[in-house]
Design a protein around this nucleic acid. Structure first.
Lengths: 365, 365
DNA sequence: ATATAGGCTGAATCCGTTG
DNA sequence: GCAACGGATTCAGCCTATA
């Protein structure tokens, strides 16, 4: 158990599995209190006891299409209710992931949009070892779809771009992820030796989701906890979790699983940071500190020149302004990173002024 | 023009491009008369401001009037109407394909289901060369989604299982297709040399769709014909097509294109052959898959050590980076193959991490 | 003629902080 | 809340120009 001092965290049942219906339980939690929701909702309409066709006297006589629509209406109500409950407890800068197959994911995605969630990406989990289509009547169903959404248009969200780029050998992570399905030792068994859960997700999938879109210490809620993959990976990665599961058999397996999980060592959880996280250094400091002198000339890559002024602005002909503004104006570009654009001369060589910024940053740390 | 003896075909405007609104025109066609519908409707992208690449060049956005809808409700009405019109003219044993991105595909899929279509597969077009995410704010949007549906539960449909298996080097075709986007000579230009259509689809994609789900002589209708990729591939493959397009500029380009197409052109087929290369395995996958734990130590041949982090980077003292970068830095070398340099300990022995990469490659093949 | 370098482009819901 | 502004951000493939 983690000790929390934040007020909202004090009211949250962190790192536990709640027993019951996820809609009711989410309604009982404080609003705007969790950072991320990961949801793997059921989609088999027949197995869900709480899904009923609407009480419509004409149903008996109608064709398959209407029957489907009736079932879909019930599924849509269920989706609307749990998503609304999830939305309430999500922080304004939080995010949600849902996963589904073609049976339900279109309804999930449409309802996400209807409720104002803002889709950031749809992600394809491409299974490296899917079950073949034995009858040869369709394509091998070799993927599932995840949807990642923020709370609304313009809302902030966490995305560890550099960490994911590192995970992908230095190139941007794409929206299609190749990962094997959950088999072997990772696949949990019950006492009879049968698989404990029909759709256990691989830890690798949750690892990528949580590394990508949460920070250490974030609260991750999973309303369809199952055997607790979300909780297990959250614990490993130093995130707090809240699980909701109404089937006792799944809760038992998940509890046993979670007890065995160990958190990774703290320094291993630090992840490659973006340059945006570095402290801001005003260009004027380089002048104040005497690294550059007022009157000194800077040159751009194309040979364009500008003069440093005492207040940390540049002047080139009649163009005055910041290093960025003058660079952009000279290039006719919408923007310009003055730190990499401008160079000063030392020992007959052109050195980017960014070197000086790095010196200052090194002193600061 | 093909001579048809079937009665319904006699009333169909085969191998022509109809000028006008697709909803009205589909309503004017005889019911239950076409075998396949391929539809690439507007995506309703909802782009806000301009987007520039890091080199300051401006991205040519899809800002055409035909992609603008006032609200999800307006888009849903449009979708409902054209899908209903399409459904009416589809034969009972016919099928429909739609393509979209996360902006619209969830609404498309949900409405297909609402109208009684029976989804057979969702298919992911994995782009081998997508446009990157220039600002590093999300995952690279590297795929689009197609939905393949029959007219209803239990309805018959055409699926050429063996042909697709042959296209896929003898193994079952999966639901994820790797194909490049439409560029180069295939990308049609207008008189000014600009692209004739902002979203032209590759012929290889239509080739696979038509080979998979139509027979020679089938009638294929495309209500959003654009520059006529569907018609061109249908003609090559000996299928009849009906195109509907309301923009005169697109119709003109499509007419010229179709006039040049000859039946049984194999060029599209060649494009579908994927290049066989040793798949690249990011080191991060070893961490995600639990083969190595964050916090675990790796050792180099000279005994130098580094710690694995959750994002697949290493840290040794204050040196952080990829397995290759950290290896090179510790050795003072310009480069280093981290796969052979680094070893992990198992059963008292040092094992090169390349062994783990080989395991993953074995799974993938 | 062949290799290399540089330029250009693609269905994109693409910034965050300070004043 | 809005405006100003600092400054961070790209991959694959094809085409053209140069060596």
């Amino acid at each position: 158990m983690t000790t929390k001092t934040k007020p909202e965290a004090a009211r949250l049942p962190l790192n536990t599995i709640l027993n019951g219906d996820c809609i009711e339980l989410m309604r009982s939690l404080p609003e705007a209190s969790v950072d991320l929701i990961f949801a793997d909702p059921p989609y088999n309409l027949q197995l869900r006891g709480d899904l009923h066709r609407p009480d419509n006297s004409k149903v008996d006589a109608v064709d398959d299409a209407w029957d489907q629509f009736g079932s879909f209406a019930a599924y849509d109500r269920f989706t609307r209710d749990w998503l609304a409950a999830a939305r309430r407890i999500l922080k304004p800068d939080g995010a949600i992931w849902v996963i589904g197959s073609y049976h339900n994911v279109f309804r999930l995605g449409a309802e996400l949009q209807n409720q104002g969630f803002w889709i950031l990406n749809d992600v394809v989990w491409r299974k490296s070892n899917p079950m073949p289509n034995f009858r040869g009547k369709r394509l091998t169903n070799a993927h599932e779809t995840l949807i990642w959404a923020s709370k609304g248009e313009g809302a902030k969200y966490t995305f560890n771009y550099e960490a994911l780029k590192a995970l992908n050998e230095g190139v941007q992570m794409r929206s299609d992820w190749v990962l094997p399905i959950c088999t072997g030792h990772e696949r949990l068994k019950n006492k009879d030796g049968d698989k404990a859960h029909p759709t256990q997700k691989p830890e690798a999938l949750l690892h990528r989701v949580l590394v990508a879109t949460t920070k250490p210490g974030d609260v991750v809620l999973d309303p369809f906890f199952g055997t607790g993959t979300t909780g297990a990976v959250a614990k490993m990665l130093g995130r707090d979790f809240i699980g909701i599961e109404r089937e006792a058999a799944y809760r038992e397996v998940a509890e046993a699983r979670l007890a065995k999980v160990r958190k990774f060592d703290k320094s291993a959880l630090e992840v490659t940071q973006s340059k945006r996280a570095e402290p801001r250094v005003p260009f004027g400091q380089l002048v104040e500190r005497g690294m550059l002198r007022p009157g000194e000339m800077l040159v751009g890559p194309g040979g364009k020149a500008a003069k440093v002024r005492a207040d940390g602005t540049l002047i080139a002909d009649d163009i005055k302004g910041s290093i960025h503004q003058v660079g952009a104006a000279l290039e006719g570009a919408p923007s310009c990173n003055g730190w990499t654009y401008w160079h000063y001369r030392r020992d007959g060589k052109n050195v980017p002024i960014d070197v000086l910024r790095q010196q200052i940053r090194a002193e600061m740390s």
